[in-house]
Design a protein around this nucleic acid. Sequence first.
DNA 1: TAGATTGCATACCATTCGGTATGTTTTTAA
DNA 2: TTAAAAACATACCGAATGGTATGCAATCTA
Lengths: 206, 206
Amino acid sequence: MAGKGEETRERILDRAQAMILECGYAGVSIDKLIQSLGLTKGAFFHHFRNKNDLARSLIRRYADQGLELFSDNLARAKKLTDDPLQQFLVLIGLYEEIFEDLTEPYPGCLLASYVYELQQFDEQTRAIINEEFVLSRAELSKLIGEIMTIHPPCRDVDPVSLADGFMSVFEGAFILSKSLDEADITIQQLRHYKTYIELIFTRSDV
Amino acid sequence: MAGKGEETRERILDRAQAMILECGYAGVSIDKLIQSLGLTKGAFFHHFRNKNDLARSLIRRYADQGLELFSDNLARAKKLTDDPLQQFLVLIGLYEEIFEDLTEPYPGCLLASYVYELQQFDEQTRAIINEEFVLSRAELSKLIGEIMTIHPPCRDVDPVSLADGFMSVFEGAFILSKSLDEADITIQQLRHYKTYIELIFTRSDV
DNA sequence: TAGATTGCATACCATTCGGTATGTTTTTAA
DNA sequence: TTAAAAACATACCGAATGGTATGCAATCTA
């Protein structure tokens, strides 16, 4: 069984994440958080030592979910085709699917939210953020490296910056999507990225 | 003459922007801000009605500077060549130049910082953010539209999402740059975007 | 040069903040 | 069934917060 305590803890994390993506970490007080959940301080401090503990648990969960989603999508892509290039294109398509059904803008990336108030967090929390990007970059650039050995790119590109480009698409699109209040920006930018990958690796002239 | 008051006001704005990009708007208290400047509350509240007034003045200044930089760069590009495609490529190159000399990561985009705590700000402040993206998008998509009439793209792309892509590159790259503490990510992503534009508009096959 | 305005400092205030101490109820396990 | 541990609630605290009221010296203006 999940346990009622664990359920409450998850409820706190969910609500905290939603509120942080709208008001920022420093902008979400523990009072406001628990009030919006109908809880009290006793409940909060039973599940978290302090506010920084909440921040760390939250970004840990978000980073783990992100890496898990990536692994799942990559595994699915690898089952569908053997060619690394097609694997990557399928992988991008799988991410597109996630954002296809959204009618409202994606609430945002918690990592990005933290990055824009980095000094609010302790070293451990900052390390989690860094780690997530480093791991994603490593896995992605490895795949792109495989692509390059089979499909010579028509321009001189390095796999690491191309991997960064994939993550950058999300981060950039989320910000535009939030400020312009348009849900489909993320998909459009993902499609552009996919087109770019295609153009780079499917023609060896120019 | 600039006036001593206006000079102090600018000092406050400069320091506030730097601190907000590191701690977020809610994370920067007026006390910390004025203390880091060696000023007092009297000084702050002489120049700003309240904290929200600071926020509005700050984003107004940042947005104006951004649009001005864009206009300047576009004007320079238009003087250098008559072809809209080349104008855009030169424009991107001019932005590259700005980030070429940076040894540390760009401190970040104030608009993005605000976007991740949007609910902290009043309607007027949020409107400025929206306006900046809308205006940039309009100017850019207009130029890209001109490109498309002369250079038929090899893929079916729309100018608005391509314009969004340009802004998105900055926003995404800044986040990666800050979290990974690497200064050259922005340039690399700008180069990728430029390559994408080249590939889209210089090949009419596939 | 008198008066008014600007530019800033000092002192203070009500509220909110993160956090603690101490309960009380509910659930779990022997 | 009962003890204990978990899951919450209540009440409180010092510090930090945004903001105000007031004072005063410098500067500008008539």
